[in-house]
Computed example of a mutant assay.
Amino acid sequence: MLLHQGDLRDLMKYSQAEKSDTARRLTNLFSEPELVEHDATFMEKGLIHRTARGELVRSKSEVIVADLLYGFGLPYSYEQPFTGSDGSVKYPDFTVDDAETGCLVLIEHLGMLSDPGYVRRWTKKLEWNRSMPS
């Protein structure tokens, strides 16, 4: 259970990679740490996930997806917020806005489908996505 006061979006900021204590650790045991500056903060290069475009993402798999989209020249957004008709906000992993067709494509990396809790959350998010107006 999580209790919070204020806007839930403020709490979501703490899930960003640059807020991660793990990402800020300098824990190279056998070599000198290689520090990378990001938004006036220094992080160990081996413990962060940075795309070719320079943004921080949550996993190595998301780096692969982001770099493929970038390599194909597709304009994408990472974790762009969407507000549903019920007022709730969801953050798809990637959003590609195809100006040529007018289609908006949401891309999710489903990396933990062996976890029943993850599957339940994904199923709810999928239902929410399907309820969005076209």
Results as ranks from 00 to 15, higher is better:
123 T>S: 09
117 G>D: 09
44 E>N: 12
69 L>H: 07
109 H>Q: 07
79 E>G: 01
84 G>A: 09
109 H>E: 07
50 R>T: 07
92 P>N: 06
98 D>I: 08
68 L>A: 10
29 L>R: 10
38 H>L: 09
130 R>Y: 12
115 D>N: 12
68 L>N: 01
2 L>I: 15
12 M>G: 00
69 L>M: 09
60 K>D: 14
57 V>T: 07
53 R>V: 08
46 G>F: 02
84 G>C: 06
12 M>T: 04
11 L>H: 11
85 S>T: 14
108 E>W: 03
128 W>L: 14
91 Y>C: 05
10 D>I: 00
66 A>R: 02
15 S>P: 00
77 S>H: 08
38 H>I: 15
69 L>A: 04
119 V>L: 13
130 R>Q: 07
120 R>Q: 14
119 V>E: 05
96 V>F: 11
100 E>L: 13
25 R>F: 05
108 E>I: 04
20 S>E: 07
76 Y>C: 03
36 V>M: 15
87 G>H: 06
60 K>I: 13
26 L>I: 12
127 E>K: 05
87 G>C: 10
122 W>K: 07
102 G>W: 11
4 H>I: 10
82 F>R: 00
55 E>A: 10
49 H>A: 13
19 K>F: 08
105 V>F: 13
75 P>N: 06
40 A>D: 14
42 F>K: 04
44 E>W: 06
37 E>D: 15
5 Q>G: 12
33 P>G: 08
45 K>P: 08
66 A>N: 01
30 F>Q: 08
78 Y>Q: 00
129 N>D: 03
100 E>N: 05
55 E>W: 04
69 L>K: 02
72 F>G: 05
